Simulated scan of single mutants.
Amino acid sequence: MTLKNKLGIMDPIELAHKEEQLTKKRAQELYDKHILETLEVGTYTGLAKIHGYLFQDVYDFAGTMRKVNIAKGNFRFAPLLYLSEALQQIDKMPQDSYDHIIEKYVEMNVAHPFREGNGRSTRIWLDAILKKELGKVVDWSQVDKEDYLFAMERSPVRATEIKALLKAALTDKINDRTVYMKGIDASYRYEGYNTYRTEDL
């Protein structure tokens, strides 16, 4: 089933290509126009602004909390009934150390507040926290897709794997445009979007 979209596209493959093209362009703007520097760091409000900016051309629900329950495989994300409360609790979680930041990231992934585009938005959100608090970002181009997906699948039960995986890919090149752009491409690749390079848009 194709998600209802602003483009009126009914074919899921066509929508995936157009979504990748439009949202990667917006991801580029987040960096080049210094929009990320104006957002709250480590809050749902900040994440919603990132999501809203990325998906503004594609979905009416860009930047708004989902109104349905969602699942991936056998895993059910936070029930709609408790979603708002869960997000308030996540906002209060500490982000004063690497471990605390990744634990906060894992909880936001479990919350999965949007209908679509959670992973791509939340990885940008995570980097903003790491940059502010630790002077580091993840070089996502160094994080293997299968390793990442497996570690994230396990993370609600045990976050050890995702902590180790991302720690090994940390860099202090926090203002390096190439690291950011390659990171966006890697982030999209985790979700199966691999048609366009961000730099070519």
Rank of each mutant, 00 (worst) to 15 (best):
K4C: 03
K6G: 00
L7F: 12
G8M: 05
P12L: 07
L15K: 08
A16E: 14
H17F: 09
H17N: 15
E19Q: 02
E20H: 03
L22M: 11
T23I: 10
K24I: 04
A27R: 01
E29Y: 02
E29G: 00
L30C: 01
D32C: 04
H34L: 10
L36W: 01
T38K: 13
T38G: 05
L39T: 07
E40Q: 10
G42R: 06
G46A: 14
L47Q: 00
K49L: 06
H51G: 05
Q56M: 06
V58P: 00
D60S: 05
F61R: 04
T64A: 00
T64P: 03
M65L: 14
N69W: 09
L81W: 11
L83D: 07
S84N: 09
A86H: 12
Q89F: 06
K92E: 07
M93R: 08
M93Q: 14
Q95M: 06
S97A: 15
Y98I: 01
D99G: 13
D99I: 06
E103K: 03
A111W: 01
P113M: 09
F114M: 08
F114T: 03
R115K: 11
G119Q: 08
S121C: 14
S121M: 03
L126I: 13
A128H: 15
I129P: 00
K136I: 11
D139G: 13
W140H: 14
K145I: 07
Y148D: 01
F150L: 10
A151W: 08
A151S: 15
P156N: 10
V157A: 14
A159Y: 04
E161C: 06
I162F: 08
I162A: 02
K163Q: 04
K167W: 04
A169Y: 11
T171I: 10
I174P: 02
D176Q: 07
M181L: 15
I184A: 03
D185K: 11
A186M: 13
N194I: 08
T195D: 04
Y196D: 02
Y196R: 07
T198P: 06
T198G: 02
T198W: 07
L201M: 02
